[in-house]
Design a protein around this nucleic acid. Structure first.
Length: 495
DNA sequence: TGAAATGTTGGGGCG
DNA sequence: ACGCCCCAACATTTC
């Protein structure tokens, strides 16, 4: 009897899992194992919201695996030694996993390969978490892409629609002698019960992921292109945490977009060089959403090639940026949604309450932190890391580098969002701000996004006393914008 | 996947 | 009728 180990590693699903399929095809027995290696103090160890999600996702996965006649083995790290020991215990000949591309994950996989080689066990890794394997795309000059548009153009040339692999109908049982610590032993849930808002907003696990995908395809995707930028509307997919934990693969999403999300793009055949992109004219909702998956690809690609960017600017000139000093009070106000700028505060409160924030608002709050407050973007990245259920090192890093102007893509430093204009443009009815800032709900639309400029009588009539019911803005938007531009100019001029 | 300043144009009020 | 000015609307440039 041949035995394989399936090391689950950021791919908490049974459908479209290449490592699982490959292991099942080649072995009589497949032992699914998850390792938690929560070394304290390690940079970018999972935050509180991620740990909450992981607990529930693992619990769901365990139940699904039991439904197929097996069970999930849960153990504590370190992974390399743990896998070698499990192989010795069970006589496994091979370990299968799907590759991941964050710097620490790459290092862990190298360590696993070394330990398994020493133990005489073979390593079998497959690609399942991205549409395009990092390292395979290069510019004409042979460099990794740093700008999204040419990256995505190149990616589309190699992308082929592929049907996802089906989930197995059954799994061979794990021998009773194999010990699992169980999910609760990982102590992933918060001690203080602050997670009610998360539980009300999300259903972690493969079932929840597929349900969310189906709901998106049945409704919002058709008008995704037009509505995705409007925070009060339920126009986005909310698939990000499911994708992060691998409860759903991008290949499943891409396939569903082609087959179930409106008319499939015209078959363009094997790419003829020189033809315009498939959606050079009018982009459909499905295509616009696929482009967002493209940003996820791009983020992973950039972090893979520039691993220092998780902690330092991609553009090294920005290491000399004159950040504000002594910003504790301002940072705390931003984190809690007490900046006095309604769209910023609404976003930060949505994040705290639900573990998620609309993408348009993420850009606005990030610009406000890095530019108007001139607080180091890493502080924002760390807060997002701890509070987002979709916290993902590649996406978070790219997003913050983009917003701070120090990183990838053609995002010039001088792009400073004006949160008042952004509010008036993307939340014109004020529904989003009123939902998250009930203390401002009675302000008329005209003043909702800048209450400090409202006539006193209007504020009184709406029951808003600035400085008491709602704060005055932490900084003057025009002044702080000018200061940010001056600071950025100082850095970018000094080559 | 900006915002603000600056430049240009054209309609209309008015002397 | 004509020129002048104002200014909204739009385009371009700059940060």
């Amino acid at each position: 009897m041949s035995t394989a180990i399936l090391w689950l590693h950021g791919d908490l699903r049974l459908a479209d899992n290449p490592a699982l399929a490959k292991a099942l095809a080649a072995h009589d027995r497949v032992l699914p194992v998850f390792f938690d290696a929560p070394a304290e103090g390690v940079p970018w160890a999972p935050g509180a919201a991620s740990r909450w999600w992981l607990h529930h996702s693992l619990t769901a996965l365990d139940a699904a695996i039991e439904g197929l006649g097996s069970r999930l083995i849960v153990r504590r790290g370190p992974v390399a030694r743990g896998l070698a020991e499990l192989a010795r215990e069970t006589g496994a000949q091979a370990v299968y996993w799907n590759r991941r591309y964050e710097p620490a994950q790459v290092a862990t996989e190298r360590a696993v390969e070394g330990a398994l080689a020493t133990a005489g066990v073979s390593s079998e890794s497959t690609q399942g978490s991205l549409l395009v394997e990092p390292g395979t795309l290069r510019t004409a000059a042979g460099n990794p892409y740093r700008v999204f548009t040419p990256f995505w153009r190149a990616a589309q040339k190699v992308l082929r629609p592929e049907p996802p692999l089906p989930a197995p109908q059954a799994l061979p049982p794990v021998p009773g002698t194999v010990v699992s610590d169980g999910v609760p032993a990982l102590e992933l849930l918060p001690r203080e019960p602050w997670d009610a808002g998360l539980a009300a907003s999300w259903q972690p696990g493969e079932g929840g992921a597929l349900a969310r995908l189906e709901a998106f395809l049945e409704g919002p995707v058709a008008r995704y292109k037009e509505r995705r930028d409007y925070p009060p509307e339920p126009a986005t997919s909310r698939l990000s945490p499911h994708l992060h934990f691998g409860e759903l693969s991008p290949r499943q999403v891409a396939w569903a977009l082609r087959t179930g999300g409106g008319p499939p793009p015209a078959p363009s055949g094997p790419s003829a060089g020189g033809t315009p992109g498939p959606w050079s004219g009018s982009e459909t909702g499905a295509e616009a959403f696929l482009r967002q998956l493209g940003w996820r690809e791009f983020a992973h690609h950039v972090l893979y090639h520039f691993p220092h960017t998780a902690d330092a600017p991609l553009d090294r000139r920005f290491e000399a940026f004159p950040w504000r000093r002594g910003y504790d009070r301002l940072l705390a106000a931003w984190q809690r949604g007490h900046t006095g700028v309604p769209l910023v505060d609404a976003g930060m409160r949505e994040l705290w309450a639900t573990g998620w924030m609309h993408n348009r608002v993420r850009m606005v709050v990030a610009s406000f932190l890095a530019k108007n407050l001139r607080i180091p973007w890493l502080e924002g990245a760390r807060w997002f890391w701890d509070t987002l259920v979709d916290a993902d090192l590649a996406n978070n890093t790219l997003g913050w580098q983009w917003a701070s102007g120090s990183g990838a893509d053609a995002a010039p430093y001088f792009r400073v969002f004006n949160p008042v204009l952004q509010g008036e443009r993307f939340d014109p009815s004020g529904a989003y701000v009123r939902r998250w800032l009930p203390e401002l709900a009675r302000l008329p639309d005209r003043w909702l996004h800048h209450p400090w400029e409202a006539p006193p009588a209007v504020r009184t009539g709406a029951g808003v006393r600035l400085g008491e019911d709602y704060p005055l803005p932490l900084v003057d938007l025009q002044e702080s914008r000018a200061e940010a531009l001056a600071a950025y100019r100082a850095v970018t001029d000094a080559r």
